[in-house]
Computed example of a mutant assay.
Amino acid sequence: MEGFFMAVQTGLTIGEVAARTGLSVSAIRFYEGRGLVHPERSPGGQRVFLRSDIRRLSFILIAQQIGLTIEEIGQLLSSLPDRRTPTKRDWTRISTAFRHLLDERIALMERTRRKLDGCIGCGCLSLKKCQLYNPEDRARGLGTGPRFLLDDVSVVSTES
C-alpha cells in the first residue's frame, strides 16, 4: 500500500500525460480500456500514471503510425512490465519482435512500390495483362485478395 501512495504522489495526471505525449485524453482512456496502459487510481478515483507510461504511449503512437493494429501493439507491449519502468533488456526484447514486424511491413511496401504500375493482382488493373499472368483466374487458388502482391507471386502457372 505504501508503494501505491508513493506512485500517487509522484505520478502524473491524465492531463499531464496528454500534454507530454501529444495524445488526447480520450485516446489515453481508449488505450487504457484496451489494456495497453494501466494507471493506478488515487483515493479520489483519479487516474495516476507512472512516467514510464509516457514511453509506452509514445511507442503506441509510433507503432500505429507505421500501421500496426491495436492487437499487434498489445502483443508487443505484453512482454513489458506494467508497474515499473522498463529496463534496457525489456526494450531490447520488445524491439526484436517490433523489428520483425517492421521488416515484414517494409517488404510489403517495397513489393507494392515495384508492382504499383502493373498488376497488383488480382483485383485487376489490366485485363490484357491478366489474361497472360492469370489465365482463367487461377490466382483464386492462392487465396483471397491481392495474392500477387501479398505473397510476392509474379506469374501463375498456366498448367492445370
Rank of each mutant, 00 (worst) to 15 (best):
S154F: 12
T10H: 14
C124T: 13
P43F: 02
E71D: 10
V155L: 15
L50A: 15
G143V: 08
G3I: 04
L125I: 08
E32K: 10
R89G: 07
R20P: 01
E2L: 15
Y31H: 13
M109N: 14
L125F: 11
V25F: 07
Q131A: 14
R89H: 08
S42R: 03
V37S: 06
Q64C: 00
I28N: 05
L149P: 05
T13P: 05
M1I: 08
I66A: 01
S24K: 10
R140D: 13
I94W: 01
L23P: 00
G22M: 02
Q75A: 09
I70N: 08
T10S: 13
A27C: 05
E104W: 00
L23N: 04
D53I: 00
L12A: 01
L12G: 03
G118I: 03
C122R: 08
C124I: 10
A139P: 03
R51L: 03
A139C: 15
I14G: 05
S126L: 04
I73M: 07
D117E: 15
D151P: 00
G67A: 02
A107H: 06
E71K: 12
L68E: 03
T144M: 12
G45P: 06
T13N: 05
G3F: 12
I73Q: 05
F49N: 02
S79G: 08
G145M: 10
E136A: 12
L142H: 07
V48T: 12
L101D: 04
D90M: 00
V25N: 07
R20V: 07
R105M: 01
D53F: 01
L50C: 03
V156D: 03
T87H: 01
L132D: 12
I70E: 03
G45M: 08
Q131G: 10
T158S: 13
R99E: 07
T112F: 09
C119V: 11
L23T: 00
S160H: 11
P135I: 11
K128E: 15
E159D: 10
R113F: 08
S79F: 04
L68F: 14
L50E: 12
C119L: 15
G11W: 06
I28K: 09
S42A: 13
F5S: 11
S157E: 05
R51M: 01
G33C: 01
V37P: 10
L77F: 01
V8M: 11
E110Q: 15
I94R: 08
I66N: 05
I14M: 06
M6Y: 09
L12K: 14
V155D: 06
V48R: 15
P43W: 04
Q46E: 11
V155R: 10
V8F: 10
A18K: 02
A19K: 15
D90T: 04
K88R: 14
G33N: 12
G35F: 03
C130E: 11
W91P: 00
I14T: 06
A19N: 14
G35Y: 07
R111F: 05
F4Y: 10
T92Y: 12
R55P: 00
V25A: 09
D152F: 04
V155C: 13
P86S: 00
L68K: 02
H100Q: 14
T85F: 02
H38R: 02
T112I: 07
F30L: 13
P39S: 09
G143P: 09
D152A: 13
R29K: 15
V153H: 10
F98C: 11
V156F: 13
E71S: 10
